[in-house]
């Protein structure tokens, strides 16, 4: 029983990531509809979308190579692996030691690398444009992400995900400007990485305004379903990563099974709030021009650097 517990947690967590991520997206969409005075299709609409896509046949471009067909699986697999690593409901996660936060970021990078290649595989102008832009955003987000990680790891003396969450759980509540800066920077990066407004618009299909959607334009059927699902998981994972790193309260400590239901409720509440925050941002802001994005990410870098500096200077 004692040995089974971590494995159980691991399985439960993977299940949560798979099942709950469409709900989070559905929640964001429903709330957004509400905020913009439209009627929503309900929180569970993403499930229906996925099911429809899985049932459909695939239409593949004539000159698509194996890279194109292989990409959805890699994207899905690496994202799901990331989901098995981030401690979401309990810090007692056996696979959490597989990758620390730096390796975790690299797991998302694999998915992005292949998506960008798939965008170029068919040989359309849109696909190449999407890949080029996606890689630009990603490359500028990376230093800010690292700085943010650096700041958090300064406070927790670790880059291991469960130890980072755990160390914040242990310490008493203090006012830490460094963590606040790191959090804001992380939020900006998460927006950019997930292609949300104001960096990219996940629901646009206007050719010249899209980044992520442009790369996956040629996908259909179960390929598209896998990619869509992976991007839902990515949003879920970035939200829960932010929540576990900066607000870990409520997460179950080591070998503490009784805390699990509570942790689950806490997670749901926190993610609902994150969703509301996303809606607030997306309703208030317009998508910015592509060449404003470097400044946006520059601001994220500045904030995370200020976090690092204020750790040394003020704490």
């Amino acid at each position: 029983m004692k040995n089974l517990y971590p494995i159980l947690i691991e399985a439960l967590q993977v299940l949560i990531v798979l099942v709950a991520s469409p709900v989070l997206v559905g929640w964001v969409r429903a709330l957004k509809c509400r905020a913009q005075g439209r009627r929503s299709a309900g929180v569970f609409q993403p499930y229906r979308d996925l099911r429809k896509l899985f049932m459909k046949d695939i239409v593949l471009a004539e000159n698509a190579s194996w890279v194109f067909r292989f990409t959805p699986y890699v994207v899905f697999g690496s994202t799901l692996l990331a989901g098995a690593i981030i401690p979401i409901i309990s810090v007692d996660l056996p696979l959490a030691a597989t990758a620390d936060i730096i390796a975790l970021v690299a797991l998302f990078a694999i998915a992005r690398f292949f998506t960008a290649l798939a965008g170029m595989d068919v040989g359309t102008a849109f696909g190449g444009m999407g890949s080029s832009r996606e890689m630009m955003v990603a490359s500028l987000a990376e230093p800010a992400m690292l700085m943010s990680v650096f700041t958090v790891s300064l406070a927790s003396h670790s880059t291991s995900l469960s130890f980072m969450a755990h160390s914040l759980l242990e310490t008493s509540v203090v006012l830490r400007p460094s963590l606040a800066f790191a959090l804001i920077a992380f939020a900006l990066i998460a927006i950019a990485e997930n292609g949300r407004i104001p960096v990219d618009n996940p629901s646009t299909h206007l050719e010249l305004t899209m980044i992520h959607e442009a790369m996956i334009l040629e996908y259909s059927g179960r390929h598209l379903a896998l990619i869509e699902w992976a991007s839902m998981m990515k949003l879920f994972l970035f939200s829960s990563l932010g929540v576990s790193l900066f607000f870990p309260w409520g997460i179950a400590g080591p070998s503490d099974p009784l805390m699990l239901p509570l942790a689950f409720v806490a997670l749901a509440c926190k993610l609902a709030l994150v969703g509301a925050a996303i809606v607030l941002i997306e309703t208030r802001l317009a998508k910015m021009r592509i060449f404003r994005v470097p400044e946006f990410l520059g601001a994220a870098f500045l904030l995370s650097t200020l976090g690092m500096l204020s750790f040394f200077m003020l704490e």
Partner: peptide, 10 residues
Amino acid sequence: TAIRRGPIWD
């Protein structure tokens, strides 16, 4: 599910 090859959509 069948895989059908078609022209590029773009």
